[in-house]
Design a binder for these strands. Structure first.
Lengths: 302, 302
DNA sequence: GTTCGCGTTGCCGAAAACGCTACACGGTGA
DNA sequence: TCACCGTGTAGCGTTTTCGGCAACGCGAAC
């Protein structure tokens, strides 16, 4: 969209906080970007960036402008998607923000399935923390958010909520693998490794073991699930993960999962949300439908 | 807004149905406009106009595009208005579509009052028929519609509804001017002139006199209220007009108004509406507030 | 059959955008 | 304190884009 370049530049400058770096990202010189901004400001009658020697910052007018611009860009994407859909081409692009737990199995499965039907639809998956999802939706950076337990913001709308139990991750052939379900107490007979505080299902675990005498401290914490899984695969240590992020096959890469007894630990809620008042591109909307069905099949009625 | 030129051109071409005439309106050659459209179509990947030798027509993709463009243009206006408001400049522009009855007294009063407070705010007043108001709102041609009795379209939202009685227009010094209120029967002792069918309050009058033996046919019909008023001022003939369109002063230009008895004729409803789901520019929103207050003062609780 | 108005295209000059370079400014670290 | 770095900005020559002109092809209407 050639005639939206100025808007895209402004958006980028607002994001990066610097004209130079934004210019670099779009393979332009700073002066070019600067002049586009200036011309926009001239037409508006007010500066939208506050310049300093360290970079630029949005003025209060700029805050309004950037919000408008982002909505406009997102709306344009939606238009393109709808037009393509009209022509039966099923093109489009979907930006998804999700919790880490969706990354290893659920989302890849779903996206692969969707793209096998509509190969022209492209995706962007950003793994993000719960708190980032709201602002990202707000700024139209993502179309859909699939995160755990984030609620109570008026600015986005919950499309579906799915209860999620917690599972134990263990290596293939682990002594506990003979059980179908596990009690929490059993797990603490083995070393425990956990994601760091405020990450993944850590909060659920902390709540569950609070006051339990048998619970010992984790022997390892990490902010990398890749690491945790690799560690689990090589030792007898156990880790926890929400249901949807555990191997759907019996075993996978030397790892298997067993559900925890519901009496021991309360589950979380997986939320699908979008920005309040925004209409989704066709592709995003269709993809959402597919996921909803899959979730109902997999986890029962929402 | 230089970077929205292409959008404005497309909008104009869609309106006029011809590239040439649109080009003329913006003082450009057809080729310039044509090329902007073509470049837009190339980027979109689909034609938005169906060309023929008599002009152009929107394709179905074009319908989507034009809707998007109009919303975008309107949103941009709103942005400008909000930014100006932020800077305390109280600038802005308001497009109003209204029934004829608002034109002689109510709207001029209100706009003059508003502009005395905010001289930088500009207005455009389009008198239109009831049925035109809905599409005009839909296409973002007007921000506010002030019309009688138009309802039941899902695409626009009613902001306020004000009951309106019918008044009798007569010349200054007319025998009936001695009364405060009039019965319908009294009116028919004089010649009656009316707006043509489907115009102004004609429908109300027709409904009221239906089956009344004393009612005689109008001796004159016109689609010009200017004419009707001039005629009334010169003769003993009476005409009808909704309350809000009658002289607010005792007499005005040789004309005075008296309300009809409510038993004789059911009143209409004056509706203020905007497009569903659209946020109004600051100026429009402020102006609406002012009008609402004025209406409550003038006609009591809505 | 002629005429009229329409969209479209090629060509060329004008205008806008861009890249380069240089500059002024403020924070950072030696 | 001073050199250094990264920032936004202005001037100038170049490149790209855009607009006007004229001509063309096509249907509809007279």
């Amino acid at each position: 969209m050639r005639h939206l370049t100025t808007h895209r530049y402004i958006d980028l400058v607002a994001r990066t906080g610097s004209i130079r770096s934004a210019a670099q990202r779009v393979h332009q010189t700073p002066s070019a970007v600067q002049r586009r901004i200036q011309s926009y400001e001239d037409e508006l009658g007010f500066p939208i960036f506050e310049r300093s020697t360290t970079g630029v910052r949005l003025t209060s007018a700029g805050e309004l402008v950037i919000q408008h611009i982002r909505e406009m860009l997102a709306e344009t994407e939606r238009l393109k998607s709808r037009v393509a859909d009209l022509a039966g081409m099923r093109r489009g692009h979907v930006n998804i923000g999700c919790s880490q737990a969706m990354a290893p199995y659920f989302l890849p499965d779903q996206i692969a399935l969707y793209q096998s039907k509509f190969p022209q639809v492209t995706f962007n998956v950003s793994v993000m923390e719960h708190d980032e999802a709201g602002p990202a939706l707000e700024a139209c950076l993502i179309d859909l958010a699939l995160v755990f337990d984030k609620r109570s913001s008026p600015n986005y709308k919950i499309l579906q909520s799915v209860p999620q139990r917690l599972s134990v991750l263990m290596r293939q052939g682990h002594p506990l693998a003979s059980m179908q379900e596990l009690r929490l107490r059993q797990c603490f007979e083995y070393p425990i490794i956990l994601p760091i505080s405020g990450f993944g299902g850590r909060a659920l675990v902390d709540r569950a073991i609070y006051g339990k005498g048998y619970a010992s401290a984790p022997i390892l914490e990490s902010n990398s699930f890749e690491y945790l899984k690799a560690h689990v695969a090589r030792t007898d240590a156990l880790s926890f993960q929400v249901e949807i992020g555990t191997p759907s096959q019996e075993t996978d890469a030397g790892i298997t999962g067993r559900k925890l007894d519901e009496r021991d630990i309360e589950g979380g809620v997986l939320l699908f949300s979008q920005k309040e008042g925004r209409l989704l591109p066709v592709a995003a909307s269709r993809f959402l439908e597919q996921m909803s069905k899959a979730l109902v099949d997999q986890f029962g009625e929402p």
